[in-house]
Simulated assay, not measured.
Amino acid sequence: MLSVNLRHSVRAIILGEDDRILLCRFAIPEPAGTVVWAAPGGGIEQDETPLAALRRELREEVGLAVRTDPPHVWRQEVVAPGHAAGYDGVVNDYFLVRTVGFNPRGALSDDELAAENISGLEWWHLQEVANYDGPDLFSPRDLATPLTALITSGVPPRPVLLGL
Rank of each mutant, 00 (worst) to 15 (best):
V91P: 01
E122S: 10
R105T: 11
R98M: 07
L96N: 09
L121H: 15
G86A: 10
E77M: 14
V90R: 11
A107H: 08
N117Q: 06
W124T: 10
Y94C: 02
L121W: 06
A84S: 07
Q76F: 04
V91Y: 02
G106N: 07
T99L: 00
F95E: 00
P104I: 06
A84I: 10
A84M: 03
G101P: 06
N117T: 08
L96I: 10
A114V: 05
E77L: 13
G82H: 05
Y94L: 09
E122A: 13
G106M: 07
E122N: 12
E116H: 10
L126Q: 09
D111V: 05
L108E: 04
G101H: 11
G106P: 01
H83Q: 14
N92Y: 15
V100N: 13
A114P: 02
D88R: 08
N103W: 07
E112F: 10
D111P: 05
A114W: 03
D88E: 13
D93L: 07
H83R: 15
D88Q: 09
R105V: 14
P104N: 05
N92F: 14
G86M: 10
G120Y: 01
D110C: 04
V97G: 11
G82I: 15
L121C: 07
V97D: 13
G120D: 06
A107V: 00
V79M: 09
V97L: 08
V97A: 06
S109Y: 07
D111R: 04
G101K: 06
I118C: 11
E116T: 03
D88W: 14
A84D: 11
E122C: 14
